[in-house]
Amino acid sequence: MLRIENLTMQFGGVVACSGLTAEVKPGQIVGLIGPNGAGKTTVFNVITGVYKPTAGRITFSPREGEQYQLVGLSPDHIAKLGICRTFQNIRLFSELSVLDNVFIGSHLRLRSSVFSSVLRLPRYTAEEKEHYEKSLYLLEKIGLQDFRDEKANSLPYGMQRRLEMARALATNPKLLLLDEPAAGMNPQETLELTEFIQEIKEEFELTVFLIEHHMEVVMEISEKIYVLDHGVLIAEGSPSEVQSNDKVIEAYLGVG
């Protein structure tokens, strides 16, 4: 699904990520962990085209037999190929309604022209109806159907996180990148979130790549985990392998 090879990202003299090689296989949930400032979000930003890496290749194959080089593509192009993300610091369209936030997620799949949208030609209205139905379904899925006309920024924090996920799902992604989905959630919410991620993964046939700080979440749902520290990959493997890795313990607890 996604193959990252020798990825290096430098900002001036700062090396945010150096020589990272990782792979996400179709249908997997893969975790990316590491202490603060380890360069995890940078990896996401490079995958989604926000940054152009200093060196390295990223290959994305949404379907069998299709392969795309992501380096050099713009974020919107990458989203159209089927990679969508959420943000660590929530980035909703805050003044717009909850429903519109999700609806806008479908915009990239719209085939009608702007003129058929203004004239409300049947072709466009049919597409719009389909997008709205999908948005409403997604809102129901995340339990926000009763808040659909509220402004996005009026929602409590946990709901905003879920709304971001619904918006990302509306783009019809093959690969979903979640940047700290459990940040700021209490244990109960965290538990619900893990179940939710597994559920949407099954239902929408997703592959999930997630950054997480809460070890319980990652350990619980990931099939494979990559551990970054200071931009360098220090460990990879199944949750239990990673948990017992000396370097990982050192990076997290500062033993040394």
Partner: peptide, 9 residues
């Protein structure tokens, strides 16, 4: 940033 990440050119 979010608009572009949602595939809006």
């Amino acid at each position: 940033v979010a608009a572009q990440a949602m595939g809006i050119n």
